[in-house]
């Protein structure tokens, strides 16, 4: 079933009266429970696209549908995890999660909400850090809390903008596993849109990868990833199929860049 559909979506930033197109003519659809990655060069409009999906801004042209309805702003059906840590610094890890849950479960009692928060803190391995403020946590820990908050709110759609972009390689792998575990935890899978710069990350996590190009910022290719789940990271990385897909992605990703250099758009 189609969960999200974009029809000819364009968005332009306003800059001193002039319109700066950031994304143009995007047509995609995403199934319920699908894990879709978006990759593309810096500045191609990935974050812009995500904030349109979140309802933080509205398309200049075209329409975004969720469950067949045009979106009219932010909603509890969508959770957002930003590229840069988006916790509230004056709330402890636990308070951040409690705050999130309270926004979707207005009538639930305090005790119940705190129990849910602790459960999710446990799931991301931060039970002992419940009462720490974000500034007392490392970047990786903060991002775990942000992910725990997003999942604890139990939205149907999860929008993630380079959530692991600022982490070291080890933390990145750990959090990828945490994310997959939360996504595929037995109940109905959430629909995930995951922006990344990292080709391996995209291949390992996704059901489908959308490749964007810059100027105009639009989706140029959609590549299905058909490896069985749950995926065994080590075995997969050694396999020929993986290497084949990875090479294909690398050439797609860099073709765009090389073309630009060849076409003298980049001054050398």
């Amino acid at each position: 079933m189609t969960k999200i559909r974009l029809e000819n979506v364009s968005y332009a930033y306003e800059d001193r009266g002039a319109a700066l197109p950031a994304v143009e003519g995007i047509n995609i659809s995403v199934h319920e429970g699908e894990f879709v990655s978006i990759i593309g060069p810096s500045g191609c409009g990935k974050s812009t696209l995500l904030s349109l999906l979140a309802g933080l801004s509205f398309p200049s042209a075209g329409c975004i549908f969720i469950d067949g309805q045009v979106i009219k702003g932010t909603g509890p059906d969508r959770g957002l995890v930003f590229q840069h840590y988006s916790l509230f610094p004056w709330m402890t890890a636990r308070q951040n999660i409690v705050f999130g849950i309270r926004q979707v479960k207005k009538s639930t009692g305090k005790k119940t909400i705190e129990k849910i928060a602790d459960e999710y803190l446990g799931l991301v391995g931060l039970r002992d850090f419940a009462h720490k403020y974000p500034l007392q946590l490392s970047g990786g820990m903060q991002q775990r809390v942000a992910i725990a908050r997003a999942f604890a709110m139990n939205p149907r759609v999860l929008l993630m903008d380079e959530p692991f972009g600022a982490l070291d390689a080890k933390n990145r792998v750990v959090l990828q596993e945490v994310l997959l575990k939360l996504w595929d935890n037995g109940s109905e899978k959430k629909t995930v849109i995951f922006v990344t710069h990292d080709i391996d990350e995209a291949v390992l996590l996704s059901d489908r990868i959308m490749v964007m190009s810059a100027r105009p910022g639009t989706v140029v290719r959609e590549v299905p990833v058909e490896f069985a789940r749950p995926r065994d990271r080590a075995a997969l990385i050694g396999s020929e199929e993986y290497a084949g897909l990875r090479n294909k992605m690398v050439s797609l990703f860099y073709d765009d860049v090389l073309q630009k250099i060849g076409g003298s758009e980049v001054a050398l």
Partner: peptide, 16 residues
């Protein structure tokens, strides 16, 4: 802006 956007994305009420 990040903090405001975060709050908006959590769908908070005006009072909150």
């Amino acid at each position: 802006k990040r903090i405001i956007d975060s709050a908006k994305a959590l769908n908070v009420s005006e009072k909150t």
